[in-house]
Structure formats: structure tokens, C-alpha cells
């Protein structure tokens, strides 16, 4: 609990980046954010922890203009802490907006998709390009949301892991961008 008080005092030190993560300097990170190993945060990606900490797991890709926002619900007490947890192997594509508090593993948020605060995403889900989920629900595993009317189906398999892409980005992004230094939670 002592760490909580230090958060409040020095919010700049809340960013925790694991050793093998690649977080570009041009990304916009605000608040208490933990980024796991091998996770790639592209330049111009936005992660805002407003209502509480955001904990991002390993092997995620967060692309340009992706927004991950832990927003305070309107009218809520500003002192309430809401923790947003994002699992491993997720892909946030260009210009998607993620506001929910929970995401499992191996999900894909496609281009310009939007997941509202009430939607809990389990594992293996794909939110198709341009799809908006704003209701209140728990998306079952392997759900695919697609098309203009957000039609749904349950896929057989989870979307494949993006290990090759992560490996490639790990090598190339370093050549063109300054990175935010890894900093463990303890240091």
C-alpha cells in the first residue's frame, strides 16, 4: 500500500516497462502504466490511465493512433481506482479505441474498432474494422465481430500469435525511433 502513496506524489515514475518491451518515445503514455516484456508500443499510440492503473501483458502490439484509455465513468468519484488489465498476445490496430477494463489473451482490435467501457473481452476475440461495441456484456471466447451491423460468430480457433511481427518490429523500430527506457517497478 505504500507504493500507492508514492504514485500520488510522483506520477511521472509510474511508468513501468519490462526489459524486452519496445516503447517508442513518441507514444503518449499518461498515468500508472505497466508494460510487459516483448510488448511493442508504436509511436503516436496513446495509453491514458486516468481512473487507475493500466497493466499490459506480454507480446502485445499497440499500433499507431491506437487509444487505450482507462476512463473515469462520468459522475464517478475521482478517488475510485479502476484497474485495467490487458493480457498477452493482443493486437491493437491503427486508430482503435479500447476503454474496457478487461481483456484476455490473443485478441485483435482491428482498424478503427471501438470497445466501450462496459464490454469485457475474454480471449481469442476479433473486433472487426470499424465495429463498435458500446453495450454491457462479456464477449465469449473466440467471438468475431464483423461488418456494418456488427454481426457475430464464434470462430474455431484463436487468431494466430504475432511473434514474427514482434520480432521484426523489435529489430526495426530501434533503428528509427528513440525508445523509452525499460524501468522495472522496483527501481
Amino acid at each position: 500500500m505504500s507504493s500507492l502513496s508514492t504514485h500520488d506524489a510522483k506520477p511521472k515514475h509510474d511508468l513501468k516497462i519490462a526489459t524486452h518491451a519496445i516503447v517508442c518515445h513518441e507514444s503518449k503514455l499518461k498515468g500508472d502504466i505497466t508494460i510487459g516484456a516483448h510488448t511493442i508500443v508504436h509511436p503516436r499510440a496513446t495509453i491514458i490511465a486516468e481512473a487507475g492503473p493500466i497493466i499490459i501483458g506480454e507480446f502485445n502490439i499497440i499500433e499507431e493512433q491506437a487509444h487505450i484509455i482507462n476512463r473515469l465513468p462520468p459522475g464517478a468519484d475521482p478517488s475510485t481506482q479502476i484497474v485495467m488489465e490487458i493480457g498477452n498476445g493482443n493486437v491493437f490496430e491503427v486508430d482503435c479505441l479500447f476503454e474496457s477494463t478487461k481483456m484476455g489473451d490473443q485478441n485483435v482490435m482491428e482498424v478503427k474498432s471501438h470497445v466501450g467501457p462496459g464490454v469485457e473481452i475474454t480471449s481469442g476475440c476479433i473486433i472487426g474494422a470499424g465495429c463498435k461495441l458500446t453495450g454491457k456484456e462479456i464477449l465469449p471466447e473466440n467471438t468475431v465481430v464483423y461488418g456494418r451491423n456488427c454481426a457475430r460468430r464464434i470462430a474455431m480457433d484463436k487468431p494466430p500469435m504475432q511473434n514474427l511481427q514482434i520480432e521484426f518490429l523489435t529489430k526495426t523500430l530501434v533503428n528509427y525511433h528513440h525508445l523509452k527506457k525499460p524501468r522495472s517497478a522496483n527501481s
Binding site: 465495429c131 463498435k132 461495441l133 458500446t134 453495450g135 456484456e137 456494418r148 451491423n149 456488427c150 457475430r152
Partner: peptide, 9 residues
């Protein structure tokens, strides 16, 4: 049953 793009149940 989910209705429309907003997925209203």
C-alpha cells in the same frame, strides 16, 4: 438477441 450496431441486447 443483439440489435443493431450498438449491440443492444
Amino acid at each position: 438477441y443483439l440489435v443493431g450496431p450498438g449491440s443492444n441486447k
